[in-house]
Write a protein that binds this DNA or RNA. Structure first.
Lengths: 340, 340
DNA sequence: CTGAGTTACTAAACCGGTTTGATCGAAAGA
DNA sequence: TCTTTCGATCAAACCGGTTTAGTAACTCAG
């Protein structure tokens, strides 16, 4: 029952007894159409069940009415990350209100640049979101060259003319460290994300600074890859080494949860002998044992804000950076005073 | 530096000294162009850096060169589900090879139908994937009415003219039950997903059947919602009740992991006093304590196959259902013989 | 040497909207 | 009363491709 006889603007014009142009004007709320005819046209459109063809509009106004995301992550890591789905849900919230679509592209890291080029050259999107910023991220220059508007999540460390949603991980990490310091910990370690990611390196720096401002000695930092396996390996390193820390600040929940089991295997009780904090406050954080103290972020909100900024940018406005509320520490059972 | 002077087919034609039509023929590998001119045209296109405009092609051949997914899930649940990102990664693998794009739509459940209608009416996509099938799913009729080609993940329980990727959860559940039966368990419980989801109810039925075919008595079944909170509550119900089971088969890993902590809180040792199995074999499964016995599925593969089927369907072929390998049970430390 | 059949190519129509320039009748100003 | 201006409307061009119909040159059988 593939009824391909979708009505066109021509049909609406005929039924309403006007020209195509007038229908177009009426629908886009332009002046120069009498109230009388406007209503007749709208009625005709309603009767015919006509919706303007995005394809045709896209061609004539040279807009795609869509924005894009290029994801260069391994499928497995993607699956474990709670950020991404919540973010796109937020993005969609804004987009659907404004009649825009979201085009997703998942590519191997080696094809990331090609992914953006394809999107731009084919004219598939009017702008993109810049996620997973890296240190000295080359995509900023690429997108500038391509003339593709963009909004980044967090402000890049290289000059960027694009607006950013000012996500800042530092207060969250600082809150975790200061919570631990307040409990009396003096040997605090950090399991960091990959240092070529901006959030990886920024969380790490925030950790160093928070220790210093709490008057604590610098703590050991092990770099991992945000995966469960990586978190487990890093934890093993920290617990097997000399001068075992009494607390570990993980840069995401997944690694922290994996760390919990490693501690058990090492016969280290959490939180009695080791305190642990996560980051992301995933669904699971409250339901592991002990329940995980974590930093709550709000990727859904970021998605909404980022989409608003991007659409405004595309519509020609100059857009400022977008502030967002600071992350909050959620204290649960995995943190306690250090052993005496 | 928004250089909007992208070359058009006209420019290529001029440089190559031929007409637009000939350029089009040359590029689409049609006969009627001499080898000589064809090369000249391709060279001109390369020199100018010309890529055909998807917008224009879409209009003239009335194809969107894109397929869609409408997701009607709560953002939180989405974030915790490992299926979805892996699936779209697989989809993308196929799509990018064939020059197609993926349009994503995340909507509240109440707007699901509207979501499909929008996609279809605006002509944004040429077909869609049907995920999270429900019992007596009304979307089959909807898509048929809209004339929108589709491929479903798992075969629906209502008559459907659309091809399906034959995902079957039953062997996985059966393997888990038979593993537990082999270990000597006779009191096996199940924490099911929502029964209005096809996979929820099918896993439940598979559980019942597997128990029967192992010669075991019917076990208690508690319905939950696939979330950590739901899994915890269900586990609590099972462990607090009379006639406590010696093993629990969860319908996903998230609930199983939440269940592990509830067991600890109840002073029930896993696996000594209680065996636990999950479903999905998430990244985390191997890194909780005890490591979780789980059913490994392959959503990445499903995505690839589903996309191939959908594109073939759109291209006019008649497409058969697509078989996929049965899920495998991954045995880890969370299962052991029951207490004596 | 003619007429039919190929081959290689062009001009023009078309997809379904938006946008520009022109037209026409009516109201307003001289 | 005779312009002038303005609001409402239409016809046609345009966006950048694809596709159809037509044509010129060239081959080949009779």
């Amino acid at each position: 029952m593939t009824r391909d006889d979708r009505p066109t603007i021509r049909d609406v014009a005929r039924v309403a007894g006007v020209s195509k142009g007038t229908v177009s004007f009426a629908l886009n709320g332009r002046p120069g159409v009498s109230e009388d005819t406007r209503e007749r046209i709208l009625a005709a459109a309603r009767d015919l069940g006509w919706t303007p063809s995005t394809k045709a509009r896209a061609l004539s106004v040279s807009r795609a009415f869509a924005v894009g995301i290029v994801l260069a992550r391994e499928p497995e890591l993607l699956g474990a990350d709670p950020f991404f789905p919540a973010f796109i849900a937020g993005v969609e919230r804004t987009l659907s209100d404004r009649g825009q679509a979201l085009v997703l592209q998942v590519v191997p890291e080696s094809e990331e640049e090609a992914g953006y080029r394809r999107l731009a050259d084919a004219g598939r999107v009017d702008g993109v979101f810049l996620l997973d910023l890296r240190v000295a991220d080359s995509r900023i220059a690429l997108l500038t060259e391509l003339g593709l508007p963009a909004v980044s999540i967090a402000r890049p460390d290289v000059p960027s003319a694009f607006p950013a949603v000012l996500v800042d991980d530092r207060p969250g990490i600082a809150a975790a460290v200061s919570h631990l310091a307040g409990l009396g910990h003096r040997h605090v370690a950090h399991v960091a994300g990959p240092s070529h990611f901006l959030h990886g390196s920024r969380r790490r720096r925030a950790f160093d600074e928070a220790l210093a401002s709490a008057g604590l000695p610098a703590g050991p930092v092990v770099e991992a890859d945000f995966s469960a396996a990586g978190g487990a390996a890093a934890t093993h390193t920290l617990l097997a080494g000399p001068d075992r820390p009494t607390a570990i600040v993980y840069s995401n929940d997944l690694m922290a949860i994996a760390g919990l089991s490693v501690a058990i295997e090492h016969g280290v009780a959490v939180p009695a002998q080791l305190s642990v904090t996560g980051f992301d406050n995933t669904d699971l954080a409250g339901y592991v044992s002990p329940a995980l103290t974590s930093v709550r972020t709000d990727p859904y909100l970021w998605g909404r804000k980022a989409a608003e900024a991007l659409l405004d940018l595309i519509d020609g406005g100059t857009v400022d950076d977008v502030p967002v509320p600071a992350a909050q520490l959620v204290i649960r059972a995995s943190t306690a005073p250090p052993p005496l």
